[in-house]
Amino acid sequence: MARLSPLMAVPLVVFTAFAGLALIGLQREDPNSLPSALAGRQAPAVTVTPLGDKPGFGDADLRAGDVSLVNYWASWCAPCRVEHPKLERLAGEGLAIYGVNYKDKPGNALGFLEELGDPYTAIGADESGRMALEWGVYGVPETYVIDGKGEIVLRVAGPITDRVLESTIRPAIEAARAR
């Protein structure tokens, strides 16, 4: 009978370790969630420039007493197209959504809204990406649930899917309203 070399066991050990880590990762509550250092803190300053003739917004709008969303998006962002109907649904339900157009050309951004609809209560452009840095944005789309006092309740990195909307965003909105 032939003896097996200890080196032959290395691939099996590596595979087992990788499979174990993958299993742990899949059991996380929301694999798309990223921690936010800002959760539970006041939203950073709003420093946007006007986008066309759309109404703009500022810090006071996030502290006006109503729960709202701040949504970072761009016309060049394919996942932003995917989440857009969910934003329109929330806006249709009366939720204030403030849009931050991220590093985009104004004409392209306005064309995107003309094509898909405009779910935003107010909107501004972050052409340099400076505001996004202050908010800790990793990329677009990214959405924040803000309570009526301007505190960040939840951060969602990536597109809002039906699953994320129902299991994460709606409960956060209700919790923020209950405060």
Rank of each mutant, 00 (worst) to 15 (best):
D147Y: 08
G56T: 14
I173D: 08
A37L: 13
S36Q: 06
L38M: 03
R89M: 12
G99Y: 08
R89A: 15
I146L: 12
D104R: 09
S75Y: 09
I169R: 01
G20P: 03
D147A: 04
A172T: 04
L34E: 12
L95F: 10
G20T: 13
V156H: 14
V100K: 05
D59W: 07
A74W: 04
T143F: 00
L95M: 06
V67Y: 01
G136H: 03
C77V: 07
P35H: 10
D30L: 09
I173P: 09
C77G: 05
D59K: 09
H84C: 01
V14P: 09
G117W: 05
I169F: 00
Y102I: 04
V140K: 02
I97D: 09
L87D: 03
E134L: 04
V67P: 06
G92Y: 05
R81A: 11
E93Q: 15
L38N: 10
L38H: 06
V10G: 03
I160Q: 08
G117H: 07
G58K: 05
I152L: 05
I146S: 04
T47R: 15
P171L: 04
I173S: 06
A125G: 07
V46P: 04
I123P: 03
G129D: 01
R63K: 15
L113V: 03
G139R: 02
N108K: 14
A37Q: 12
E115G: 06
G40L: 00
V156G: 02
A60Y: 01
R179Q: 14
P55H: 08
A45K: 12
E114L: 10
A125V: 00
G158W: 00
L21H: 05
L87A: 05
A172L: 06
G148Q: 06
P119S: 00
A19Y: 11
E151V: 15
M131I: 03
G94R: 01
P171Q: 09
E151K: 15
G124P: 02
V145R: 00
R130K: 14
P159G: 07
G129M: 08
R163Y: 10
D61Q: 14
S5N: 14
I169P: 00
R41A: 12
W73I: 01
S68C: 12
G124H: 00
S128V: 07
G56Y: 02
G94E: 08
E93C: 02
N108T: 13
L90K: 02
L90F: 06
W135Y: 12
P35I: 10
A64T: 07
L34N: 05
T143L: 07
P106Q: 13
F18H: 05
I24R: 14
R41Y: 06
